[in-house]
Amino acid sequence: MRLETAQIRIHTNLCTGKSTQEQALLARIESLPGLRQVAIGRNLAGSWGAGDYTLDLRFDPAPSGSTGHDDGLAAALEGVAQVDRVAYSPISDGLRAPQLRQGIWRTLMFRVRPEAPECQVRSLEQDLLRMPEYMPGILNWRLARVLSPGTWTHVWQQEFASAEDLLGEYLMHPFHWGHVDRWFDPEFPEWTVQAISHAFCPLATSLIANHNRREEYAP
């Protein structure tokens, strides 16, 4: 399978009638060749460095010799103010609540410093993947490396039952501040991440479980 996520910013004069906006966007996207699954959610207050919507797509595998990052989506989203889009390959994931309904989908896209040693990047990845051990509110999760050229190097996604689990336990947990934050803070010698985009939006059903239910991927 081929996975993509995007942050979509709409023009200011279109910021009313969000249900109509979502339906119009979905109608244009759903005709893309090879598309197997699509989800879109309007980002909630507290998101930053992100767009108005989070869009997630699952495609059939790209043909041999193809990068899989064609301009079909760009054409479908013509007229949208800005699209920040990545294709990615999962490193690892986990499921505690595959039947999750009406939850919260969080997407953190980040860029590691080009001069960061590879061992440091791997340690950062390992600390992120340890977070669910300490935070039961993270119900499902996936860490991935970005394949497409652009701003971001990684995508870190989590599913929660409510926004309170993200804004409370996750962001305020001692493991977050004591272990994970050092990779994101330029005042620490371990500083590795130089830019982030943090978005969260409503989630109808678990995207991670739906992806895994249809086909497995190799790390």
Rank of each mutant, 00 (worst) to 15 (best):
D71Q: 15
P202N: 05
T54P: 08
G178K: 05
Q120L: 10
P219K: 01
R182M: 06
L171W: 00
L147G: 07
L207W: 07
A27D: 15
E159T: 10
F200E: 00
A116C: 01
P136Q: 07
R142V: 12
S19P: 03
L203I: 02
L3E: 02
N13D: 15
V193E: 03
E164Q: 14
G46A: 03
P149K: 09
Y217D: 09
N212Q: 13
I208Q: 05
A209F: 07
C119S: 13
G72P: 04
V86H: 01
R113L: 14
T107R: 02
F175D: 01
Y217S: 11
Q157I: 13
A76P: 10
Y170C: 09
A87T: 13
L166D: 00
Y217T: 08
E216T: 12
P189V: 05
L203D: 00
A76S: 14
A74Q: 14
D127P: 00
S64G: 10
L95I: 09
D185Q: 08
M172T: 15
E159G: 13
Q102V: 11
E187K: 14
D70P: 09
A45E: 00
P189W: 02
E216R: 12
R28E: 14
H198M: 11
L57N: 02
P174Q: 00
L167W: 00
D181G: 02
F200I: 06
T107H: 10
V193G: 01
D181R: 14
R58L: 11
A24W: 15
D71H: 14
W48T: 05
N43S: 13
S148N: 07
D165T: 08
S89G: 10
V83K: 08
T107P: 01
R130N: 12
L25G: 04
G150D: 05
A76D: 11
D60M: 07
S64T: 15
Y134E: 03
G68M: 07
H198D: 13
S206C: 11
F160E: 00
Q23T: 10
D52V: 03
